[in-house]
Design a protein around this nucleic acid. Structure first.
Length: 579
DNA sequence: ATAGGGTTAG
């Protein structure tokens, strides 16, 4: 007996396959190969440990003539964390087929992990049924796994249902629910779950913070993020790299670069995410030179850049007109770090040339690149043609979008704007006609504004807000004062993508950000900065409107649109009207 | 013997 314990202890301290094989030889020589405790321990080491070997685990497993649940679990678990998690599902199937051992709560946890990773939607639902039949429907861990599995299989509703029906919930299951929403891109839902979580009085930990900060970053909830920062400081969470990284990203995405820098400077430990978040933050704010400086520091500390690092660099270079540098980093990706540029990187390059007015080069670059069949690339070129009033290249972009059958309303709006700038009224009229004749699938436009720690969301012609009347009368007043300051309301081509389905009265002529601005002006103290987040790009009329509002009301207004920040102050914008 | 939750870019 003590011999067996001795072997188990040896296995406990095992840290390599070489060592494991020595122990195994000892086991066989001494006739212990049929001891279940020992063979399971051997198996689990091979299947699960980072220094183990799944192939060897298979050999061992096949030698066991009647594997018990523990042995099956080791195999399913090992396979579920392997690069081919589908095999874990097959393994579970054979376990069921042989029918000698019953699955337990662990089995289901590992199976669900495999469903999550291999996107096995059908199997996930089937597992749910088995879980209920086997009596594990009340198990917190199994349910948490079930939620993640459903959510990864695009059924966040099912995840929510599982969560709702749980008889007991702990911190981990709450965190899982929040992260399911934030990873599905449903950030305001994630923040709402936190409101409910507070009532349950379980507190929160670093995991909660990280998910919430990510959601704050996406919706632009700076005030809420600052609360989280304070909480993290008071509770000793600032030493956690994940928390620090999420804070940098939150500050940068909410338009507060200084906040991001301060967190970055104060971090004792930094990983790729830390550096990337800072570089991307500087990049999207147009500080390419600083992004480059940080990048050089990053290399000196010996951290390996990733493809995201270069997205940040290229973005910064393009917004600052650093064409040579951008080109240098684009090549450096492959030559120095063996990173293959993706579509996004090519897009940045087109933007880099295009923004700098080098439209010929941009076009040549596309023709030499492998991404000429990606609509995003041509759309980027079209955007650059608008900035530089280039009809000819714009039409080339348009033709390629038509060729790829990817034309959308926004493209037509862009080309119409190019025609208008060039004085080609017929061209603009053609685009209007095209927009009307096509049944474009459109993304509804949204704007968010944070007032008193709450996110208020508006769509075009929104009347769903509880204070609709007040907001519309405020907006009338704001427009009046903007006009007095020099604003000319444009009969601009309304981006169709901001159309709502119901054409309520004539209020749908107000884009969502105008509503958000009016609401913000009415609900925040004079002189306070307004921060607005949009999911689309700012249209010309709204851009001009916001400039005059910033002057007439003496307010700084920071608008984050789909691709960049606009910093409005005293009647002008940080983008210098190039966007 | 063994489990579940976290960040950038899309």
């Amino acid at each position: 007996m003590s011999r067996i314990n001795g072997i188990l202890n040896l296995l406990q301290g095992c840290n390599s396959m070489k060592r494991l094989q020595k122990i195994q030889a000892f086991v066989i020589v001494n006739g212990y190969q049929d001891d279940l405790a020992i063979s399971n321990k051997l198996l689990s080491f091979c299947a699960i440990s980072v220094s183990g070997s799944l192939a060897y685990a298979h050999l061992l497993f096949n030698q066991i003539n009647n594997p018990d649940t523990a042995a099956w679990n080791s195999m399913i678990r090992g396979l579920s964390q392997s690069p081919s998690p589908l095999k874990a599902i097959l393994c579970y199937n054979s376990m069921m087929f042989e029918g000698q051992s019953r699955p337990d709560d662990y089995t289901f946890s590992f199976l669900l992990k495999a469903c999550e990773k291999s996107k096995a939607e059908e199997k996930c639902r089937e597992a749910h049924g088995s879980i209920i039949r086997c009596g594990y429907a009340e198990d917190v861990t199994v349910c948490t796994n079930l939620m993640r599995s459903y959510s990864a299989n695009t059924s966040i509703e099912c995840a929510q249902k599982v969560f709702d029906r749980m008889t007991q919930r702990d911190l981990i299951s709450w965190n899982a629910m929040i992260s399911c929403y934030s990873q599905a891109g449903l950030h305001d839902e994630a923040l709402k779950i936190y409101d409910q979580m507070r009532i349950s009085d379980l507190g929160l930990d670093a995991f909660t913070l990280v998910s919430l900060l990510s959601s704050c970053a996406h919706v632009g909830a700076l005030n809420f993020g600052v609360h989280m920062h304070k909480f993290a400081r008071q509770n000793g969470f600032l030493n956690n790299v994940f928390v620090g990284n999420a804070l940098i990203d939150m500050y940068a995405k909410c338009g507060n670069l200084d906040g991001a820098r301060q967190v970055f400077d104060g971090m004792r430990r930094r990983d790729v995410f830390t550096w990337n978040s800072m570089i991307v933050g500087l990049g999207v704010h147009g500080h390419g030179d600083e992004a480059i400086q940080i990048f050089q520091q990053m290399l000196m500390t010996g951290i390996h850049p990733s493809s995201v690092t270069f997205l940040g660099l290229l973005c910064g270079c393009s917004h600052q007109g650093l064409v040579e540098e951008g080109l240098k980093y684009f090549h450096m990706m492959r030559s120095d770090f063996s990173l293959k540029p993706g579509t996004k990187h090519y897009g940045c390059m087109v933007d880099l040339y295009g923004r700098a007015g080098k439209l010929e080069e941009a076009l040549e670059f596309i023709q030499r690149s492998p991404v000429g069949d990606d609509p995003v690339i041509w759309r980027t070129l079209l955007g650059a043609c608008k900035i530089h009033r280039n009809v000819k290249t714009g039409e080339i972009g348009m033709r390629n979008l038509v060729r790829l059958e990817a034309l959308n309303a926004g493209d037509c709006v862009l080309l119409a704007a190019i025609y208008t700038q060039a004085g080609d009224k017929q061209g603009a009229a053609r685009m209007r006609k095209l927009i009307r004749s096509q049944k474009f699938k459109t993304t509804p436009g949204w704007s968010w504004i944070e007032v008193d720690d709450r996110i208020h969301r508006f769509v075009v012609g929104d009347r769903s807000h509880s204070d609709t009347e007040e907001i519309y009368s405020e907006l009338k007043d704001v427009i009046h004062r903007a006009v007095l300051a020099g604003y000319v309301e444009e009969e601009s081509l309304t981006p169709v993508s901001e159309f709502t389905n119901e054409q309520s009265e004539n209020s749908d002529r107000y884009h969502s950000e105008k509503l958000a601005i009016a609401f913000g002006l009415a609900r925040t103290p004079e002189g306070n900065c307004l921060r607005i987040v949009k999911n689309l790009r700012v249209c010309r009329d709204c851009h001009s409107f916001t400039k005059f509002v910033s002057k007439a009301f003496k307010r700084e207004i920071i608008v984050r649109d789909r691709v960049r920040f606009h910093h409005f102050k005293d009647g002008s914008c940080s983008c210098n009207d190039y966007w």
